[in-house]
Design a protein around this nucleic acid. Structure first.
Lengths: 198, 198
DNA sequence: ACTTAAATTCATCACATGATGAGTTCCAGT
DNA sequence: ACTGGAACTCATCATGTGATGAATTTAAGT
């Protein structure tokens, strides 16, 4: 017997076969950041969840912020979605936006990075800066460039409405907001957006 | 010379004169909780800010949660404000609510506990529970009891709108929302609330 | 004046955190 | 077959965390 490494207690060194550990770590990281925010998530907890030594996380991503940045691949590209929305007939804009939000947030995988961003931005200045930047340049910038005559303040009121609803629905999970149906919510808040953006 | 304690390096034991340290600690705590949320604020940081030994914080409040609870004396009593709002003529409700929000949040001292609550609720389950409870029983309960025929979902949409705006204004501090005037905001979002609550 | 209680610090505990450097095992290109 | 690098763990550091118990000084109650 040539002292083959025990199966259960995989020791040191590279594992045989192809490796997908990096992706596994990222997946766990996304989930934990979404759940606890940047500051509330520890490298070691991520490593533990991925069944891996903390140093490996470091090996792949260098620093905690490195993990965060990689984990934040946005699940919705504004440069794709916004033009599509803006090309719609004006009177259907409100409804289309609400539907888009509900669809993206309704899917756990696409919701995770958004939740992570939102949670982290509340207590971490760096994350807040990212989100501020997103709101101002990705949204306001593009909407303005598209021949928009809508005041920035109005756009932000609309963004605020959506952020608030998402918080009540997915962070605080208050009823009945948490389990309201898509149609119900569209009927309720689409007119609000419509009014802001007219 | 009777080895009188040096003035600068106050040593052990009680300080002469009347004592207001407890309040000082609470004040710093409120500020830090508002700034960083529950998890982001450390007992030691509070103590440092108050110029006091960490153990003293413990002496007064027992545990970190104890500090939080004491620091969260709500600066607005729903059982006072809500009836006043609800007794107004229906068509001025939206405006009155927006004005109330802006007033309370405009004052740094009254804003602090609210910000603390909001920030903490995003990452801390216990704080989230407090806030959920607040939304459901303090708001929905009371509004329902006052002969309100407004669906809960509508009320929550209104709450969401206000939460979202406050986040953009006071947490992310995006412009122009951050420095918009009271009248401007009233004109913008009062009609939204009015529609939800009609 | 004496005694109890409150206010305050000091010295610790046990534990979690992010980071680093070195060692081991395997894969891929030659 | 050899070798460079990638994957992976271990041991360890310095620091920060919430909590506790004892010691000291002052204020209040009698």
């Amino acid at each position: 017997m040539t002292g083959a490494p025990r199966a259960g207690t995989a020791g040191r060194g590279r594992r045989p076969g192809p490796t997908e550990t990096r992706e596994a770590i990222l997946a766990e990281a996304r989930e934990m950041f979404a759940d606890k925010g940047y500051d509330g998530t520890s490298l070691r907890a991520i490593a533990r969840a991925a069944g891996v030594d903390p140093a490996l996380v470091h090996h792949f991503f260098g620093t905690k912020e490195g993990v965060f940045v990689e984990a934040m691949r946005f699940p919705v590209d504004p440069s794709v979605v916004l033009p599509r929305l803006l090309s719609l007939p004006r009177e259907r804009l409100g409804e289309a936006i609400v539907r888009t939000f509900l669809q993206v947030w309704g899917d756990a995988d696409r919701r995770a990075p958004l939740l992570a961003m939102l949670r982290s931005a509340m207590t971490n200045e760096r994350a807040a800066a990212m989100m501020r930047e997103f709101v101002t340049s990705a949204l306001l910038g593009r909407a303005g460039a598209a021949g928009g005559d809508v005041p920035h303040l109005n756009i932000q009121a609309a963004v605020g409405q959506m952020i608030g609803v998402m918080i009540l629905r997915y962070v605080l999970r208050v009823e009945p907001m948490a389990s309201a149906g898509e149609e119900e919510l569209v009927a309720l808040v689409a007119p609000t957006l419509q009014r802001y953006l007219d």
